[in-house]
């Protein structure tokens, strides 16, 4: 275990009006780790992602990434440092062909720097990326309008968009929601492969079975507070978690 964690979140807090969305959440993340975050609906998971990625400014607390304080920085600055995310409700440009959606991250200064100061042939890079995500190049799926693609493809397109930035840390906000079983089965190995290649991943997911197979560690949020943390099996057996979930989802797994 190295000395410096990749991401360090300390006592992060956010209120919306009278509601506490995230209450004093702290955690650390090592390089190459695969962390899962679970919790009932409305427990503040997405807000936590928004706080880390700069879309929402925290009321108090501190986010440190690679030793640098990134609390309250603009989203593009944070993304430029290598934290990339997907959205729970995909945010794509539906009136563009699928591969053109990737042109936007591919035109960012970060990608230019990583490619050694030049952008290269962005269209080809984009199509290759989509090919990796399982877009059938031979049937011209990457060239179809994003708006005409089914939901599972949109989710994967969003993943491709996040990966196009060549992130160090990938945050997946309910990537699998609304995906068919077969799509999940084909996408999950991809993420595992990215992780095996050194990418650090935070995964927020309701599909616990899939999540538990891949993560090293999980923590559970309930009403904005971290109620348990550890290896999946131990965490799910703690009483606090059982109470939070009222047993319903645990029985499924």
């Amino acid at each position: 275990m190295e000395g410096e964690p990749l991401l360090k979140v300390e006592k992060l807090r956010k209120h919306f009006g009278g509601v506490t969305a995230v209450h004093d959440v702290s955690f650390e993340l090592r390089q190459g780790e695969f962390l899962g975050i679970i919790g009932p609906n409305g427990s503040g998971k997405t807000t936590l992602v928004n706080l880390i990625t700069g879309f929402v400014k925290p009321d108090s607390g501190r986010v440190t990434y690679l030793g640098k304080n990134i609390t309250g920085k603009m989203p593009y600055t944070i993304a430029g440092q290598g934290i990339s995310r997907t959205f729970q409700m995909v945010r794509l440009f539906y009136n563009l062909p699928a591969y053109k959606n990737l042109i936007i991250p591919l035109s960012s200064p970060r990608v230019k720097k990583l490619r050694g100061g030049e952008y290269g042939e962005r269209d080809d890079v984009a199509v290759d990326l989509l090919d990796d995500m399982g877009f059938e190049r031979d049937s011209f799926v990457p060239y179809k309008m994003a708006g005409s693609l089914p939901h599972g493809y949109l989710k994967r397109l969003d993943l491709a968009r996040a990966m196009a930035l060549r992130p160090n840390l990938l945050i997946l906000d309910e990537l699998f929601s609304g995906m068919a079983m077969s799509e999940v089965a084909s996408t999950l190995p991809l993420i595992e492969k990215f992780n095996a290649e050194g990418l650090t991943v935070i995964m927020i997911e309701h599909r616990l079975r899939e999540l538990f197979r891949v993560v090293d560690r999980i923590f559970v949020l309930n009403f904005g507070e971290k109620i348990a943390e550890g290896v999946p099996k131990e965490v799910m057996e703690s009483d606090a978690v059982k109470n939070a979930y009222l047993g319903s989802e645990i029985e499924e797994t």
């Binding site: 990625t53 879309f55 603009m74 989203p75 593009y76 600055t77 993304a79 430029g80 990339s84 995310r85 959205f87 945010r91 794509l92 440009f93 009136n95 563009l96 053109k100 042109i103 936007i104 991250p105 591919l106 035109s107 960012s108 200064p109 970060r110 990608v111 952008y119 962005r122 968009r161 996040a162 196009a164 930035l165």
Partner: peptide, 22 residues
Amino acid sequence: DYGLVLKAIRDDDRAVMSAAIN
């Protein structure tokens, strides 16, 4: 591509921000 990014900003600025573009 330059114009593509500009039009994308009009359509959804948050998505463009998450792509590390100022």
